[in-house]
Design a protein around this nucleic acid. Structure first.
Lengths: 143, 143
DNA sequence: GTGGCTGCAAATCATTTGCATATAC
DNA sequence: GTATATGCAAATGATTTGCAGCCAC
């Protein structure tokens, strides 16, 4: 059950601990771009001794190994995401949901403006998601 | 001298105060994407009574009126930028500089993935800037 | 004249740090 | 057995809030 995650850690020569496995599993199973608090409080239910510090530490080492990435799209806290190929993100200003966006942006993967070497690319889109637009319409008197 | 900024505020029906004019002028004259602390400590020199709260408040009202935008690229604090047409940003992981990037990303200005309405777009690129690459080379024994 | 703005101090929230204990290898 | 990870509590840093006095309109 945890084999997949054990292997990921082994492949990167990261020491295997139950906390790291749980955090990795959580991110693999929840593509909701959770923040530290969400990961912490959710995992704390099953593993009451878990500390926030460990969540921070574990995410940091996973990030250094490019197994996860952190997003600054929300502005107030970091959000985490399993690395699964380049994709971008949409933040709904109404419900706060962060959604994966699959559009390709050309020109994103090379040297920029005369020589800046690019190592990471993140495209952030903000607006109102489909779902919240539907709700808006339903609430109005005249469509 | 402040006419330009007075007019910008007037155009948006924002009450004119010397603090707002100074902050707007600072952002117009410094395209370095400063954080609150930089704006505050720089302006404090000439206007010792200035408070951080006012810098926060002023930036907030300028942002609501789309005169400035805030960037989350640094991850630890907000950076501010005069709004001057869509452009993207590059963060140098070595020297911390944030540079304007002028490449155009197609597909960025429309409804996404079946209906999400996009109102803001920010493209963040991170890596090593041209200048820091030059320094790196100079420091090595063998090019 | 008054509602909105400024500036101060205290509060809040995410994250980091220091350190003693526990655990993977 | 030892270096590294965990967990706790305290510290830090950016931002927000509450509030009294001030100023633009």
């Amino acid at each position: 059950m945890y084999e997949k995650y054990v292997n990921i850690l082994k492949d990167h020569s990261i020491k295997i601990t139950s906390q790291r496995l749980e955090i990795l599993k959580y991110l693999d199973e929840h593509h909701t771009h959770p923040n530290v608090e969400e990961i912490y409080s959710e995992l704390k239910k099953k593993h009451p001794s878990l500390s926030r510090t460990t969540v921070y530490n574990s995410l940091e080492i996973l990030k250094k190994n490019r197994i996860v990435q952190s997003l600054t799209i929300s502005g107030s806290e970091l959000r985490y995401d399993i690395e699964e190929g380049l994709h971008h993100h949409f933040l709904c200003k109404k419900c706060g949901a962060i959604l994966d966006i699959s559009i390709a942006c050309p020109n994103m993967d090379r040297t920029l403006d005369g020589g800046h070497r690019v190592e990471e690319v993140q495209g952030y889109f903000k607006g109102i998601c489909k779902n919240c637009q539907t709700k808006e319409k339903g609430r109005r008197i005249n469509g």
